[in-house]
Nucleic acid binder design. Structure first.
Length: 473
DNA sequence: TGCCAGTTGTG
DNA sequence: ACAACTGGC
């Protein structure tokens, strides 16, 4: 009997077996499959929270693979070098992976594919991270969409393929290649003390993600359209964490949303619209990769942004000590849980880029360091949307007032009371946990007085609008 | 997925 | 006195 040459499944942000075309392709011919995750520069550059969360996802996915008789091989180094070494060692004839769309990954993957093909190895990338490949959605003129609403109109009626089944088993190779120990990668070191606290808020892995989707589609989705705006309500799906690492596929979420819509659940269409926002973010990132690094509208280069990331008011913003309760509550929620309610994301972004006139890149960097659901496309689009420098962005003069937003979206003050300890007779557990999570070097104590506003709602608005009127474009 | 000041209409 | 509307940022 001839030993079939193995297939390498290069696992990246697709830590799932269900609806994973790359996994299916890997085992389609009945050949042995070697799943490998590579710790390369891209992983090394991840922020503290996403790197730590990725480590937990890998640990979970390795045990999922073990349950079906497979393994997750861990290797460190340049992706191409690692894959070439694995090919030589295992005699593999093919490498498959799920496509990524951020510019760094695209450059790496293109280089890898070209080189492997030159080596005579079959190299295939497959769709799986998105509903539609970004180059398949185009306007009548053949251009890419720069405005969300027409994008949504075209996407809502498109056929999304049904999710594909998980492979029952991945045939194991005769001998397994060596693997690093996950612990040796120290994915959590940058998280320091906050990690234990953040961990209580997570749901890691494919099974947890599916359970979360089922639970959401069974109940909360009905009120999603209104409840999602109130940070004190558990009105959101909280699936971003799982979507970010591919623990669930967007197609699985889409079809759950469609089914809920056909069952007459009112909020289901809004949920589909949010999935389309994720899709739109990737559409923009693919067609204009510079959205992640520089103003999408170059005229904003002339705006007098504060670019000092260590300015006192910027430090106050990061530490949740601006003196604006809604902003501080949201920034503390971020630091303690690794996530932030969407309403909070809009408010803290508006406050940073408008009241504090600080460059959105500083906010983008902090989110990239602290969000466990960090996503290159959503983060870039979200910040440029908030700052007013992006395509289809909110105009710069549209300034959120953090005080009136609080009255409107947290009228019972449950959210701010959950996250702010100072001045409360009986601070909540979560509010106190913030002081345990922050580095001692910040020198914060729950006994401190709540800070006075670094910039008030009125003064910040006035200053931002004056700068906007005086702009040179 | 805004805010605010100014105006108009109602009692 | 105040809701409802409007235009400009």
């Amino acid at each position: 009997m001839v030993e079939l040459s193995p297939v390498i499944w290069w696992v990246r942000r697709d830590l799932r077996l269900s609806d994973n075309p790359a996994a299916l392709a890997a085992c389609a011919g009945g050949r042995p499959v070697i799943p490998v995750f590579i710790h390369d520069d891209g992983v090394a550059r991840l922020g503290a929270a996403p790197k730590w969360r990725l480590g937990l996802g890998l640990e979970c996915f390795a045990s999922t693979l073990a349950r079906i008789g497979s393994r997750l091989v861990l290797r460190r180094g340049d992706a191409l070098e690692v894959l070439r070494a694995l090919v030589a060692q295992s005699g593999a004839g093919a490498v498959v992976w799920t496509r990524a769309y951020d510019p760094d990954s695209v450059a790496r993957d293109t280089r890898v594919k070209t080189a492997l093909k030159q080596d005579g190895i079959e190299a295939r990338s497959l769709a799986g991270h998105l509903l539609f490949e970004p180059w398949t959605v185009a306007t009548g003129q053949g251009a890419f969409y720069k405005v969300y609403t027409p994008f949504w109109k075209v996407v809502r009626t498109r056929e999304v393929p049904e999710p594909c089944a998980a492979p029952r088993a991945l045939p194991a190779p005769a001998t397994w290649p060596e693997s690093d120990m996950l612990d040796s990668w120290q994915m959590g070191t940058a998280m320091r003390k906050g990690a234990e606290i953040v961990a209580t808020h997570l749901r890691v892995g494919e099974e947890a993600a599916q359970a979360r989707l089922d639970e959401f589609a069974a109940s909360a989705i009905a009120d999603y359209a209104t409840a999602r705006d109130f940070p004190a309500c558990n009105g959101t799906s909280r699936l971003s964490e799982n979507l970010a690492y591919g623990e669930i596929s967007p197609r699985t979420c889409w079809h759950a949303g469609l089914r809920a819509m056909h069952e007459g659940k009112a909020g289901a269409e809004t949920f589909l619209k949010e999935l389309a926002w994720r899709e739109f973010a990737y559409h923009l990132l693919w067609h204009s990769p510079h959205i992640a690094t520089s103003n999408w509208r170059p005229e904003w280069d002339a705006f007098p942004w504060n670019t000092d990331e260590n300015a006192p008011e910027v430090i106050a913003w990061r530490q949740g000590r601006t003196g604006m309760e809604f902003v501080d509550a949201a920034m503390r929620e971020l630091f303690v849980t690794g996530t932030m309610h969407n309403r909070g994301r809009m408010i803290v972004a508006s406050y940073l880029t408008k009241h504090l006139m600080t460059h959105w890149r500083i906010g983008l960097d902090w989110f990239a360091d602290t969000l466990i659901d960090w996503d290159p496309a959503a983060n870039a689009m979200g910040w440029q949307w908030s700052a007013g420098s992006g395509p289809d962005a909110t105009p710069y003069f549209r300034v959120f007032n953090p005080v009136t937003q609080l009255a409107r979206f947290d009228p019972g003050r449950r959210y701010v009371d959950t996250w702010i300890a100072e001045g409360r007779r009986r601070p909540s557990r979560k509010a106190l946990s913030y002081f345990e999570a922050v580095p001692p070097s910040w020198g914060l104590s729950a006994q401190d007085a709540y800070p006075a506003p670094v910039v008030t709602a009125e003064a910040g608005r006035k200053r931002a609008l004056e700068a906007y009127q005086a702009r040179k474009f």
